[in-house]
Amino acid sequence: MTIDAFIKVDKLYFSYDGTKSVLENITFEAGRNERIGIVGPSGSGKSTLLFAIAGLLPFSRVKGNTFINNEKMMESKAARLRKQIGLVMQNPDDQLIGATVQEDIGLGLFARGFDKNAIFAKVKEQLKGMRISELAQRSPCEISFGEKKRACVAGILAVEPDLLLLDEPGEGLDPRGKRELINIICNNRACMMISGHDMELILNTTEKVIVLDKGEIVAFGLTQEILADEKIMEHHGLMVPPSLRVRHYEKK
């Protein structure tokens, strides 16, 4: 493991039923302030990989090792290590558990033992930052999908995690919402892993990218190079982002 690596995943295998592997021989490292994208077709194991890193998969079915900040993710340490991690789930309904948006954003802070005043201050800051102040007292059931997504991101950013795992964060956001999300991601100094099908978002936010297909890493390298490689992208059911395609034609 290199000195600066914040996450190290070493020969990770995972299977839900014990027969078919969902993740197979996953090995990579990410630095402390590095942002890594995970792309791949539906069902390639992107979300599962994020859950594995967050220590949310049944440990009995995970083979291989995951290290967070030089500490091995294991059952006895998972609860403590998870406090350094913020996971934005793909489906906001799986994540939002507070009775109101405001309460939900404060839950992570509450779990980390912040006092009431600090919680209120941070919640207010995140509500403002994500432009959802008017939703503070609303129930998460009553707001739109895009608003739910913003509330999820706000709840995770509020705890200022060292490792941010974003599972399809741009899904359901309007263009302005996406631009704001890109700004937020780029201004955050945490180590990040961002999965998704939105190639432009991955291109604009990450330095490196992992291409997953059928649970295996089929390519890992600089985002600009991998996403521009038409052969890799099309072979694995993906698309070169339009902006890279335009640049390619301009060069020609």
Binding site: L56, R82, L87, A111
Partner: peptide, 10 residues
């Protein structure tokens, strides 16, 4: 699961 992911655990 959501609670675990948000930092509650044990």
């Amino acid at each position: 699961i959501a609670l675990e992911a948000r930092g509650f655990s044990g």
